[in-house]
Design a protein around this nucleic acid. Structure first.
Lengths: 213, 213
DNA sequence: AAGTGGTCTAGACCACCTT
DNA sequence: AGGTGGTCTAGACCACTTG
């Protein structure tokens, strides 16, 4: 941090540092491992430890449950199921969920409100081949997200952020005009190699996602 | 992962696990510490280790230099300085940079291209009180971002993502229509408690930021 | 071939927090 | 008050990678 070692410079080995600071090598190792995870240094066996040329910048975003997000901001959370359909997999969904045209998926439209005002519009597909028990859930009181967290607590997730022009049916439920820029979060969830769910979360204009690093 | 312990369940202590797996307590400790950093378990002295009720979901996004981002996608990177102004701090900038109305900032407009096509429009302010050496830089060949990484390799960063309607001057340089939804990254950088720079990065419609967790 | 980091062991002391 | 995780030590072996 002081700039004592230039970017790219080789810093002393673990044994040297342990002597310098009069501590065990394991202690130095842990410190350097943590700096390496933060992206400040680069370590290679035999080659030694170097200050990164361009510090590897990485930001951690917390992905809260929508309920927690609204309540943390001091709002009263309110969930409403708008529509619930069992559909045959359309071509793009067949590809995404690895299904055939005869297999089925659950399609859900939901609205999340903060203090009664629309906050997030959700359009979700659930793979009924991978999660047949979803067909028995009515999603009236429990939102799909909260249901899924209970049903499949650990899963692989791919998330993406983008900006899109609001279209039907999001405009109607978010009470905004057509083609307003909305912040879109897409999330695909997997478990044991099977696609479980895919969701589009539309946020009101002005919504931000923040992080520090 | 197997669901052997329910969310919220207390798992065995470090000594018990060390016996169960015939290894040292330090080894168990490291494994549990890593699971805790991943957000899967929660640890408290005396209280023990529990499976998290709702797994703390956090995504790590890499924040590459724009040059690296374009080149990684196979594009030819091209940078152009559009405008460079020394300005007196406007009220909102005074607040952001902790300046008085007499103090100055550098205002820069830049365009980043991939294979000759506009990719990102950049509007940046640099605090000339905190970084007086920036006044001598011309930013013709070296982009402000790359200059700053060299000048201040380690700094605190606050980043935010949102969706906005494209306005002047971004529309002209990105060659898009007014009010097109654009993906906006805002980044504020600090060092030793001083605000160094604030930048707005406008991306073309369709731009996505992805992460897995 | 040799030096570096990666990992593990066995033991120890301590701070914190719950009971 | 006591049990838990947090951290450190000293020593050891090994895998990787580069000179």
């Amino acid at each position: 941090m002081k700039g004592e070692w230039q970017p790219g410079a080789l810093i002393p080995g673990e044994i040297d540092l342990a002597n310098e600071f009069s501590c065990a090598r394991a202690t130095i190792n842990r410190a350097l491992r943590e700096l390496s995870e933060e992206g400040l240094i680069e370590r290679k066996r035999k080659a030694g430890t170097r200050v990164r040329e361009a510090p590897l910048r990485q930001a951690r975003f917390e992905i809260p449950l929508i309920r927690a997000e609204i309540e943390a901001a001091g709002g009263r959370y309110d969930y409403q199921l708008l529509q619930r359909l069992v559909v045959k997999a359309s071509p793009w969904l067949q590809e995404r969920f690895s299904l055939t045209g005869r297999q089925r998926a659950l399609r859900l439209f939901c609205l999340h409100r903060s203090d009664g005002a629309p906050y997030q519009f959700e359009e979700r597909w659930i793979n009924l081949v991978a999660l047949p028990e979803a067909e028995a859930a009515d999603f009236l009181a429990l939102s799909p997200n909260e249901w899924l967290v209970r049903a499949v607590p650990f899963s692989q997730v791919e998330i993406s952020f983008s900006a899109v022009a609001a279209g039907e049916p999001a405009v109607a439920h978010l009470e905004i005009e057509k083609d307003t820029p909305v912040f879109l979060i897409e999330r695909a969830t997997w478990w044991a190699g099977q696609a479980l769910t895919y969701v589009k979360l539309f946020h009101l204009p002005g919504h931000r996602i923040r992080a520090r690093y």
